[in-house]
Nucleic acid binder design. Structure first.
Lengths: 179, 179
DNA sequence: CCCAAATGATCAAACGTTTGATGAAGATGA
DNA sequence: TCATCTTCATCAAACGTTTGATCATTTGGG
């Protein structure tokens, strides 16, 4: 440790970002503080929004966040191979296997063998699954709206543009993806 | 279902955002598409960055992402009560209890009873924990830099500003927080 | 045609997370 | 002082995730 810049008395999830960036700079002068602040802010913002959506909308309706993502993908993209569901819902294939046990047990999703390739799995929503996502998504989207109101319309557009640009750079950054 | 706008052949984690927004609009005309796109983009961007950092930096060094968050908080804010660690690392108090079992077993963190309140727990890093975060964070920050390079400096600033503004609105949105 | 390599799915073990319950210690007030 | 309420931590059960292994099917080369 170098100089002690004592933590403020009131350190919160959100105010910790500023404190951490300042303190890290003291400890390791070579740190890229802009990149640090960006990543820290991004992950915390996302975590707050997701926690809010999951705990106020989906858990009370009997769905976890990962469960919602899968049902959501099946709702919009229609019946498809499990491999595709994993890809577009952002779940590894192994995690999806486990997740499907729950969703199938709860009667929301059906697993079937694909006709053209007996290794592959075909997934589709049941009537109940369709009903669940329809109601769940309406509430989900109302909550998204409440969050979005904090920004002006053009700010929302700009935020999306910047995040897209950041993701587009992931190839250059040689980022590792889920498999 | 209404009109079938067939999913593109190549639906990926990232391209799914555009598709989903279009399709949801068809299915539910009342949907707030801007809010939907914003939340979808935010959660996916964050998930990509975190997965990359966890799988390329921390797991190979024997730390999970939640484990890293806790060690990171203890490194910068110094020894503190477990309650505070939970708050600033974004972990529920119950989850931290379980997490500490691993971190303590691995010799990274020490649990002690607080002197002024015998209910409370005082946490601190061991020498080994300090070494782990020092090396781990350097690699972590290099990776953050690689991601950040996708944006111009002023774009990074603007992204952080927008995310901060979004979070500031969480009170108005009456968002639910971790406890 | 046959065998090796690649692909799709699942499994097993270890972990972290959530909700709700329980137990222990501190604060409050009659 | 005593009873009650609140706060801090942990536990238990159910879940989802990761990595690495296994098994079945399909593909491709010889």
């Amino acid at each position: 440790m170098t100089h002690e810049s004592a933590p403020p008395n009131e350190l919160t999830f959100w105010s910790f970002v500023d404190f951490a960036v300042r303190k890290a700079q003291q400890e390791l002068p070579a740190v890229d503080t802009d990149a640090m602040r960006m990543a820290l802010t991004l992950s915390r913002a996302s975590s707050m929004v997701i926690y809010d959506l999951e705990s106020t909308v989906h858990r009370p309706r009997g769905l976890t966040w990962p469960g919602f993502r899968v049902i959501f993908a099946l709702w919009l993209a229609g019946p498809m191979e499990a491999k595709t569901t994993a890809e577009i819902s952002g779940t590894s294939r192994a995690a999806l296997s486990a997740l499907l046990n729950t969703l199938e047990r709860d009667g929301l999703v059906v697993r079937e063998r694909a006709s053209h390739d007996r290794r592959a799995l075909q997934l589709s929503l049941t009537e109940e699954g369709y009903g669940a996502i329809l109601g769940g998504f309406r509430a989900h989207n109302r909550r998204e709206s409440a969050w979005a109101e904090a920004l002006e319309p053009d700010e929302r557009t700009e935020l999306v543009r910047l995040l897209n640009k950041l993701m587009a750079g992931s190839t250059d950054a040689k980022a590792k993806f889920r498999s």
